[in-house]
Structure formats: C-alpha cells, structure tokens
Design a protein around this nucleic acid. Sequence first.
DNA 1: ATTGATAATGAAAATCGTTTTCAATAATAC
DNA 2: GTATTATTGAAAACGATTTTCATTATCAAT
Lengths: 148, 148
Amino acid sequence: MDLFEQGMENEWLRQLGERGSRLTGPRRAIVRILVRSRRALEPLELFDAVRVEAPGVGLVTVYRTLDALEALGLVQRIHESGGCRRYLRAPHGHQHVLLCTRCGQAELFDGDDLEPLFAQVAARWGYQIEEHWLQLFGLCPNCRKMKA
Amino acid sequence: MDLFEQGMENEWLRQLGERGSRLTGPRRAIVRILVRSRRALEPLELFDAVRVEAPGVGLVTVYRTLDALEALGLVQRIHESGGCRRYLRAPHGHQHVLLCTRCGQAELFDGDDLEPLFAQVAARWGYQIEEHWLQLFGLCPNCRKMKA
DNA sequence: ATTGATAATGAAAATCGTTTTCAATAATAC
DNA sequence: GTATTATTGAAAACGATTTTCATTATCAAT
C-alpha cells in the first residue's frame, strides 16, 4: 500500500549507510516517521511521534539525525513567518514547496522553470545567481471547505 | 546626497508616530541605521552599529523596535540556510530579495509577475494561494571579482 | 558466533538568541 | 510647566538547540 514511502525509507537508510553511518534503531524509527509525514515537523513533534513506536529515543538523537539527513539533502528546513524549525523531505529538481497555512500540510509541486527570470536579474544587477528559494502558502482543499 | 535614505527615514518615523508610538532617541538611531544599511542586519549587529552613535541604547530596545517596524511592514526578516535572524527593509509590490552569499549585500529586484505559475499550481493542487516567497542567492559583482 | 574498535546514544549541563519583568525615565497632550 | 503613560535598560527568565561525557550497540574482522 505504501510502496512509495517504503521505497523512500530504504533509500534514505541506504544513503545513510553509504555515508558511513550505522543503521541504529533510533535512526530507523526517525526516518520511518519522516518519510511518511504529510506535514513538515518540528524536532519536538518528530520526537513525540517517534517515541510512540520507540519509547527510549532521546530528543538529542532527533536533532542529530535531522542534521545528518539535511547534510545528505534528504530533508529540508521549511521557512515560515512564525519560525523556521519544521523539516520536510527535500524537493528534487525544479520542485518547490506549497504549504497549507491552516493545517500545515505540505506538497511538492513541479514549478515552472524560472531560469529566464534569473538570467534577467543576473543581467540587471551583475550578480551570478547560485541558488533560489520559492515557497507558496495557501489553503489546502480541505481547509478551504472548513473555512467556507 | 542621501536624499533617498533621508526620505525613507522620515517616512518610517512618520508611520511610527501615526501608529501612536513615541519618537524617542533610541528609535531614531535604530531607524537611521536600518534605512541606510545595504546589508540585512542581525539584531546584535544592529545593536553594535547603533551604539556607535547612541551608546546608551539597550539590546532589548533593538528587538522591540524591530518588532514594531516589522508589524508596520517596513522591515522584513530574511531567511537563509545558516539562520533566519537578519532584517532588511521590506520589499514593495512585486519586489523580491537578492542576496550575496559572500558579503551579505542585499538588493531588491522587481521580479516577474508570477501569477501564471500560482494559477497553474492552484489548479493542479486545489489550493487557494495566499502568499509567496521568492529569494535569490548569488555573488554580487564585487565578490565575483574577488573570487576570480 | 565472538570479539574489538568506535560510532551512536541518552541524560544533564551549557549555550545561544530572544522575551519578560520591573522600577526608573522621558515624550507628548494638556 | 505638569501629569499621564509609553518607553527605556538591566537583570532574570525562557525555549530551542548544542555540547559534554560515560555507557551502549553496531559492524567489520575474525
């Protein structure tokens, strides 16, 4: 049923292992939750979720595992006006993040190619563009109904 | 010479006053620095800069003034991978932020109209888009030379 | 399977940036 | 000028994250 998540979980563990990390119980539990979450999660939320299945895990390990996954580019910090501490699986290629401001649900959408805009800005300001961030905020279909 | 900054400074003070805030020495000093800075500044950096001209000002007042200016939409927190604590004068309309990753210099560029992209995403995901957030990172002309 | 080297762990303490509290001060309306 | 009351700076409190360290568990080599 959740073949997609299962596959991603295995891939993340593989990449962790390849990097020389040991595949411990806490790490497996943390990856398992992250891969399956439809929302971006704060370290403490993730900690709570992990402890349901793996009661012994410490908050410090959650922080350390998030760092490792971020270093591998598997997970990304999400920036919001209220604070920037939630993490989400990282977008690939031209994907960008779309967040529901009410329930926090997150989507990764394949955005337009923004290169023309970058070229234009680069020409105007003389900058050499290295990176860009685009994020959209709105109401998901469910929350739109709720609100109506 | 710096008529532009001077004008902006007066405008910010006017808006603070209109909101019912008192025009105190510390506030004037903080606004003066912010309006003239070509870089986004952390509260502590701003504090240091302010204290050169107004030695008595406390760090707490810097925080409180930044909050007030942010509430008025005059100043905006800048998001970066290394942390999200620097503040910059806020973009207007379709303006977005362009940051030099080396020296921290910031530009506000008039970006393309991104509405078509939003409409496309809204249609595909059923979201009602409320807000968007675009930032570019790169090397400014000066830092490009330095590096070469 | 057993072992040994060492990466990873959890708990406690330390640290960092920011916010709260509070008595003293200063800006504004009268 | 004077009274009112927002603003101030210093100290203490705070929450999130990081560091430290002794113990435990993974994994490679036997």
